[in-house]
């Protein structure tokens, strides 16, 4: 039996099923990160003193990481556009670049964490550090999730391109929507944690 609405939009929702699914998932993610951002605001407003992020955190490293993530979103869209142009070779180059940039982000984040631990700065050290490690750690887990999905779409998942190219293109679009959400979370995290 064929699964309906994997390519063409459902008449009642106006989108194909995977896209509806990812938006419902992203809505739950908004609630998850929204709750943590709200906790951050409440903790900060309620605190008598609160350190400025730039006094404890490495701004140049975080800036490089921001540029890396923005670039990875560009390569993600390019990989999807390459499939729309039926160019699987370009798709592989762009998707490979997206995965590589995500790994660069995690390596830089690892250096940042290592520097904190070397200076004895652990989540238990202060409320600021606790919320910093919670938010960036959860974001890092989402990056790892994106790497796993993108690696699948770059490797074994590519087989679908031969049998059902339109559906495969839609899968890449859905992965791209998730990737953009994760990057958008960082666009909020960076100023909130590092600059304010």
């Amino acid at each position: 039996m064929e699964i309906p609405y994997t390519v063409e939009p459902r008449p009642d929702t106006g989108v194909y099923n995977a896209k509806l699914g990812i938006w419902l998932f992203l809505a739950s993610e908004v609630m998850l990160f929204g709750a943590l951002f709200s906790s951050y605001v409440l903790l900060r407003v309620g605190a008598t003193t609160w350190p400025h992020g730039y006094e404890h955190l490495n701004i140049p490293l975080a800036t490089v990481n921001t540029v890396v993530l923005i670039t990875s979103s560009v390569t993600m869209v390019m990989s999807w556009a390459s499939l729309a142009m039926k160019d699987i070779r370009k798709y592989r180059v762009y998707m490979g670049s997206t995965v590589a940039l995500a790994c660069v982000f995690l390596v830089i984040k690892g250096f940042e964490y290592a520097a904190k631990f070397e200076h004895g700065l652990y989540p238990s050290g202060s409320t600021f550090l606790a919320i910093y490690f919670t938010l960036t750690g959860l974001h890092g887990l989402h990056i790892i999730g994106g790497i796993i999905v993108n690696c699948y779409l770059l490797g074994p998942g590519t087989r679908m391109w031969k049998t059902d190219p339109a559906r495969f293109t839609n899968r890449v679009e859905v992965a791209g929507l998730y990737w953009h959400f994760v990057d958008l979370v960082w666009i909020f995290l960076f100023p909130v944690l590092y600059l304010l």
Binding site: T66, I70, S73, V77, G176, L177, H180, L184, I187, F190
Partner: peptide, 16 residues
Amino acid sequence: SLKAFHLLFVTASVVL
């Protein structure tokens, strides 16, 4: 779509 979300993301990045 991913195109619309990408443009929204680019706008947020410009503001940042």
